[in-house]
Amino acid sequence: MLSLSEIQRGFRDALLAKGTALDRHVVPAEGIDIHRNTVLVSLKTALRDTFPVVWQLVGEGFFLYAAEEFIHTHPPARPRLADYGGEFPAFLADFPPGRSLAYLPDVARLEWLMARAIGAEDTIPLRPDALTGIAAGETPRLTFHFDPSIAYLESPWPVDAIWRANQPGVADASVSLDGGGGFFEIRRHEDLVEMRALTGAAFAFREALSGGATLETATEAARDAHPAFPLAEALRDLFRDVAICGLALAEKP
C-alpha cells in the first residue's frame, strides 16, 4: 500500500513524465489520461494567454510543441497561473527549433514583463516634492522604491515594433529588423500597460535605481553611457514617468 506522498509523487510522474507506477493502484488507469490532458491543455492555454505575440509569430503548431516541452521540463511551482511562464523566454532561447528566430526570446521577455505589470500590486506614488526635504549632502545615498509594475528590458531587436505589429487588427505585420534594438521601460499606468523607449543613459540610470542602487551609483552608470548625463532633468523626468513609492538612505560606506 502506498503512502499519500508516494501516490502524489506517482501522479506527478504519470502526468508530466508518463510514469506508470500508479497504474496498478487505480481503476480505470485511463482516468489518469483525463487528468494529464487537463493539466497540459490548461497550462498551454495559460502560456498562450501570457505570450500571444510569440504564438502569433511562431504559429499554433510550433507554440504548442514548445509549450509541451516547457511544461514537462518547467512545471509550475506556484498555485496561480498568472505566476507561470517566467522561464519560458530563456527556454525559447535554448530551444533548438526556435534558433532561427533570434528575436523570439526578447519578445517573450517583453510579454512576460507586460503580463507581470498588469497584475502587480497597487501602490501609492510619492509626490515629486518628496525630494525637497532631503539634505544636499545625503542625496548621493538616496535609494528609490519603484512601483512594482515597472520593469526594464534592453534588446538588440526592435521588440516594441514587433509587439505592436502583432496586435489584433494590425494589417501590416512587417517590421524591419535593421532598425536595431532599444532600451525599454514597461509599466502599468491607470489600467493599461505602457511601453516606452528610453535613451541608453536614462535606461542605465533608471534600471540601476529600480534595482536598489543609490543615486550616486545610478548616476555613474548613466554617465558611463553618456558623460554629460543631466541629473536634475533625469530626476524630474523620473517622477513624471514612473511611480516612486518610497525613498530611503543607504548606509554610509
Binding site: 499519500l4 502526468l15 493539466v39 509550475p76 511551482a77
Partner: peptide, 25 residues
Amino acid sequence: AWSVTGGTYLNDLLPLPYTEEALAV
C-alpha cells in the same frame, strides 16, 4: 482534492484515496 506535490503545482483538482491517512492530512 490536491494539486501540489514536491513543490510542483499540477493545475488540476486531483483525486485522493479515501483512507485514514488522507483524512488526517
